[in-house]
Design a protein around this nucleic acid. Sequence first.
DNA 1: CTGAAAGCGCTTACAG
DNA 2: CTGAAAGCGCTTACAG
Lengths: 346, 346
Amino acid sequence: VSPTSRIRLVDVAAAANVSKQTVSRVVTGSADVAEHTREHVLAVIARLGYRPSASARTLCHGRSYTLAVVGLDFGFLSTDLYQGAARQAQALGYNLLLKTLAKPDTLSVEQLLLSLTDMHIDGVLWAIPDAYDRCDWINSHLLARINIPVVFLSTAPRAGIITVSFDNLDGARLAMQHLIDQGRRRIAHISGPLGWWVARERIRAWRLALQEAGLDAPDSYLAEGDWTPASGERAMAQLLDRHQNIDAVFVGNDRMALGALLTAHRRNLKIPHDIAVIGFDNILESASFYPPLSTVCQNKCQHGELAVATLIRHVAAHFGDTKDAQPALQTLTHSLIVRESSASSL
Amino acid sequence: VSPTSRIRLVDVAAAANVSKQTVSRVVTGSADVAEHTREHVLAVIARLGYRPSASARTLCHGRSYTLAVVGLDFGFLSTDLYQGAARQAQALGYNLLLKTLAKPDTLSVEQLLLSLTDMHIDGVLWAIPDAYDRCDWINSHLLARINIPVVFLSTAPRAGIITVSFDNLDGARLAMQHLIDQGRRRIAHISGPLGWWVARERIRAWRLALQEAGLDAPDSYLAEGDWTPASGERAMAQLLDRHQNIDAVFVGNDRMALGALLTAHRRNLKIPHDIAVIGFDNILESASFYPPLSTVCQNKCQHGELAVATLIRHVAAHFGDTKDAQPALQTLTHSLIVRESSASSL
DNA sequence: CTGAAAGCGCTTACAG
DNA sequence: CTGAAAGCGCTTACAG
């Protein structure tokens, strides 16, 4: 009947000959309403095409049912993580805001978080990896000041914060154990930037595994990359220049492994005969590398889903929906994927 | 002074001994305020740490300064596109909401769009590629009904909608012209799914280029993939089974090109000596393929930025901020990147 | 089971 | 240049 302007609660109330509160009760399903009235109001709502205004509700509740995921500009975040987070948020009735941090300094972080409180964001997914001093702001009282639940992704667990991370130590162990089981003895490692927590965890696993197997882990067997394929090329060249007899390389991610493979081909090395290679992540492409890459599968989509689910539980607790104590640490595990690059028998 | 609860406009007004409207004027910078008063109010705002409530403003304005980008669940969207869109939105003072469409049917689309109107979303970035019947809903009156500007990405231009797309016909021409210039004569094509508009555009360019060069373009030179590396492997095998003498392949994206390279290696073909290969997209990995892949660079980040900038201009016009007529069609162009996979001389 | 009032925090006319 | 009032669309106590 009224085509252009928006149908409001009062319009429904007027058309149904009831008060606004009654309509409100029907819409929210909060209190008891006579079945007769309820059906009538519902019919009027359907006829008029009434839809409650989210912003009005936010104003009343001080709660927006909106989460924010904040990542670094030009970040390495996978699409899968966003998708998983977005899907889970929608499934649980929340919206997801995409935020980008231009510079990871304290001032920018503060500005960003304050802007989130302006919008009554209910929770924050901190998707900036734990690297260098990017987490210093946690030490400040900012977390308490913004008074919004924050879940940290890929961050070293510590007191006072909630983290959802993969167990990188264990994942990297899977890769190392596999290489050792294949009979490899001189196993080098191409790592991500040493400033990154996940890179250090994988290095730690590399050292531990060699140690436990009674094998050498000299520093010259370690080359640092920056996660990009090009850095993998360079790191592999460094390792081969230093040592002729390396028989396996555990690479910190699949992208660098791609570059490592290229360098190996250029030097006429046979993979896996001369050198076995294993990566980390299981990106879509790695199954079609030449040769197909063995790797440690990290399900990013699942990461996004679990992070959002965890965050929403904390949000609910924060608003008093539930009284349950929430875990502050959630850990995800990896699985080993063996392909031709590491298994002569395949 | 008041640590826990939020500082409101009235608190500032009371502390500054002025009315709410005066504070409002200072905050929005709308009307003239005595310099003396302005400075005083500003000082009080700074002292109290006052921040305007975005939801209250949204309620008054009917405008949220928030955009929504809607993609398909498990979509092929690049992170770069999201990043570009998010950065541009923030730079222009807008928020960006991430929405996922579970099923691309009319009902789901309607539900999604209506939920966006509930939140007073100012504009929509339709990031679901034009494929199969996914655009049928445009034909309905839904676009007019939701009354929100929508910008379509990677969609065939048509009357009544705003599109921001790459000129795929021209981009694919670059690839084909390069292969022909290299002296290749029997050029096959591995395409994306025929249901996709961008795939059809690239096929069209393949045919046109061969035709213009007086070369054959038989249907048996065309193999359809689904954009994944695995499908590229299969498509390449099909082509090689059909024809022994193919001397080049133009592949619809870099991922499938990776698979095509693997199949070529398995058949002991030398790249580019026996067969030249060129891809499309220029993903980060392609520079480290074996051999490094020639490709057509499609700057996804730029795509996201331009799409958001365009959308915001339309939003501004929609709210009467500007009176300028806005272009309904924006086109982005590609650049050719020559690497070893297609150039014997490199 | 239902309704009249006050309020969420800001802005838009309207006065002066 | 500044202020008192009404309103954005809904919800939360408070009555009955």
